[in-house]
């Protein structure tokens, strides 16, 4: 509206002055929110949870020479049993075997009472996700790759094979999921990889992973 009377000798020429105070407040604001956003906020978002029993995968795998699938079983119909039951642990731990106080606690509190351990699962997926362990087999992947079993598992799961105690689980207070719950893009590292098509039966169609 050029015809509207304007004072054209305005601040366009001496903008620096009319917006005095320098750049400091801006920088302070920037830094404060960067600190908040990158350090404070993530801490606020997650609550920490520990496993009810300290479990050493290392002891079982290295010392006892076990494999993942001995406890994390695929059932006959192709569904995945996931966590071992107390009864299956009791196959070996019917009584205290070692000197670890946690083992003794496990035997006393769970094996003897028949209670199931409420293990925390890092990778638990939302209800709307369908995941078939049967479809993600060593045979399928090793057509091209050269994975050991524990390596294949570690593609998605925290690699606990060599750890003496299970990691802390960070639970997102808003979504209720673990921090390690995979996002879709992580599934797509394989599913959207065109090199896999035709070799494996992988596909990136929605219904392949959603239910």
């Amino acid at each position: 509206m050029e015809d509207r009377q304007l004072n054209s000798s305005g601040c366009a020429t001496d903008g620096g002055k009319c917006c005095g105070g320098g750049i400091t407040p801006f920088l302070v604001g920037l830094v404060v929110s960067l600190i908040f956003g990158w350090w404070v906020f993530p801490d606020m978002l997650y609550s920490k949870k520990e496993q009810p029993i300290r479990f050493s995968h290392k002891v079982h795998m290295e010392d006892a020479g076990m494999e993942c699938k001995q406890c994390h079983v695929l059932r006959e119909d192709g569904t995945f049993a996931g966590l071992p039951s107390t009864a299956s642990c009791a196959d070996c731990h019917s009584d205290v075997m070692g000197s670890d106080p946690e083992e003794a606690r496990f035997v006393n509190e769970y094996v003897k009472t028949g209670k199931e351990v409420k293990w925390l699962v890092y990778q638990i997926q939302p209800d709307n996700v369908f995941f078939s362990h049967a479809a993600h087999s060593l045979d399928g992947c090793n057509q091209c790759h050269d994975f050991k079993e524990s390596e294949l598992c570690a593609q998605c799961h925290p690699d606990v094979a060599n750890s003496d105690s299970a990691p802390t689980l960070y639970e997102n207070k808003l979504t209720g999921y673990s921090k390690q719950t995979m996002k879709m893009w992580q599934c797509e590292r394989c599913h959207a990889n065109e090199n896999h098509y035709g070799v494996t039966s992988s596909s990136n169609a929605c219904f392949v992973c959603h239910k």
Binding site: E76, D77, A134, S137
Partner: peptide, 16 residues
């Protein structure tokens, strides 16, 4: 969904 989950289950059963 044509009971799509049954499709997935059938495939898994076949795999096993």
């Amino acid at each position: 969904s044509f009971c799509h989950h049954r499709f997935m289950q059938a495939k898994d059963k076949a795999r096993v």
